[in-house]
């Protein structure tokens, strides 16, 4: 495992993030090398870095960048899942009764857009 991967795993495993001046001690490397590792992770867009103070010393708080999970709630109409999934009928959306029932069950309001 490369030093970058080890650093990334350490940052990921810490819920609140890790101070950079703690990271290099954990990795048992010097702070200059640690800066390079952090830069690499920042360039790869894997972590975020914000200024922080730890024990009175200015440092950076490193956190893993949250992966944006795609949301599929809009496939649901109430509790009905999209009727097109796994459908083996001849596809005729114009007159499909299952699709009609799904649409009729829709009850979208402003909150629906905020589901995801």
């Amino acid at each position: 495992m490369s030093i970058e991967e080890t650093a990334y795993n350490l940052i990921r495993d810490s819920k609140e993030g890790i101070f950079q001046n703690e990271l290099w001690k954990m990795l048992e490397i010097d702070s200059r090398k640690c800066s390079r590792v952090v830069s690499k992770l920042l360039n790869e867009d894997l972590i975020t870095r914000e200024q922080a103070v730890s024990n009175g010393a200015r440092t950076y708080l490193l956190k893993v960048k949250e992966e944006e999970k795609p949301c599929f709630d809009l496939l649901l109409s109430g509790e009905m899942f999209s009727p097109c999934a796994g459908c083996r009928d001849a596809c005729q959306p114009e007159i499909c009764g299952k699709l009609t029932a799904w649409v009729e069950n829709l009850n979208d309001d402003a909150e629906t857009g905020e589901m995801c």
């Binding site: 599929f72 709630d73 496939l75 509790e79 009905m80 899942f81 999209s82 999934a85 796994g86």
Partner: peptide
Amino acid sequence: VVRGYLVR
């Protein structure tokens, strides 16, 4: 969503 998909 997962449940709905698998049931379908």
